[in-house]
Amino acid sequence: MKHIISILIENESGALSRVAGLFSARGYNIESLTVAATEDTSLSRMTLVTSGSEEVVDQIVKQLNKLIDVVKLIDLMDCPHIERELMLVKVHTNEKTREEIKNVADIFRGKIIDVTPVSYVVEITGPSDKLDSFLAAIDAKSIVEVVRSGATGISRGEKGLHI
């Protein structure tokens, strides 16, 4: 099953490689990993999407907690949460497909942020599976390139992940 692990980690050089190294050394799978500083500059927030059996994910959480630089973490799947990912898609367009792609983008609340006579860049945010659906909805042959940020997420309600 998919898990979204949200991690507060010391904003130190090398902290990212400790997490990445843990996953490669122990053979855990990383679907995506995003990281950036937070409002507290001494901390980074990392969102890691992984999947595995309950036992494996349990070990992943324990092993992450064991890293000295990890301050706190939660598995967002354990609570109501919001998941968002940003995707930029460059597609070929022609007379025939311009309208159609725009319509699909609208349905997905996407924006067209770059236009040339023969291409669009579409920007879409949403849960990762919504982005998958968009890609499935347009003609695969028209896609020039896809850039995805990887999922980030936050829990719903007043409580938050902080120190």
């Binding site: 324990k62 907690n65 064991k66």
Partner: peptide, 11 residues
Amino acid sequence: VDPASISKTVK
């Protein structure tokens, strides 16, 4: 003492 040792190989 190490939570990660618990149920690592044997539940």
